[in-house]
């Protein structure tokens, strides 16, 4: 049993409303689970959360505890064993900010250029601003890369000709 994972990854998605996190985490607390890293975002007006839930309770008991809450709040639920654990942070050293008139392919173009230089994406968030008339795609990436900022800038320079503004800057980590 030594290869049994210590964590499960819980994913919940559904129409957003106030109080979902409180209901879900109270139900989890009732199973005796503890929580690890979590990220909740509103995407397209929906509630989305991914959270590390300790495997101190069985998968079945977690599902049983969450099922009534998920049904009442209309949430879709996934629960999967998770390899890895806490304290595995990698620190980004480069930030890439992107914006341009919204069109298909921007993310693929930018991230292919980045990975070709060995860029490891650690965080990515994107949004569409500007309203329905003139949608503007905005993306913010933080990651780790050993290439210089100049090399990355050069790798991304073709995007500018296609109407996508890309800004590469260092992430100034300060320990104090």
């Amino acid at each position: 049993m030594s290869d049994m994972s210590e964590w499960n990854l819980l994913t919940l998605v559904g129409a957003d409303r106030p109080g979902i996190v409180a209901r879900v985490t109270r139900a989890l607390y009732g199973t005796g689970c503890t929580l690890g890293e979590a990220s909740m975002l509103r995407l397209g007006g929906n509630f989305t959360i991914m959270m590390m839930v300790s495997a101190t309770a069985s998968e079945q008991s977690i599902r049983e505890a969450l099922q009534p809450v998920a049904e009442e709040l209309g949430l879709r639920l996934h629960l999967d064993p998770l390899q890895g654990g806490l304290h595995q942070h990698l620190l980004p050293n480069v930030q890439v900010r992107v914006n341009g008139a919204d069109r298909a392919g921007i993310v693929a173009d930018v991230t292919e250029a980045l990975v070709a230089r060995g860029f490891h994406i650690l965080e990515l968030e994107s949004d569409v601003a500007g309203g329905a008339e003139r949608p503007l795609y905005i993306m913010n990436i933080q990651g780790y890369c050993e290439a210089t900022l100049e090399e990355l800038g050069e790798a991304l320079s073709g995007l500018g000709e296609r109407g996508v503004a890309v800004d590469v800057s260092p992430v100034d980590l300060l320990i104090g």
């Binding site: 620190l91 992430v171 980590l173 300060l174």
Partner: peptide, 13 residues
């Protein structure tokens, strides 16, 4: 905006 860490808060930035 800048990213910070601290000797008094290990393993978090």
């Amino acid at each position: 905006m800048g990213r910070e860490g601290c000797l008094s808060v290990p393993d978090y930035t």
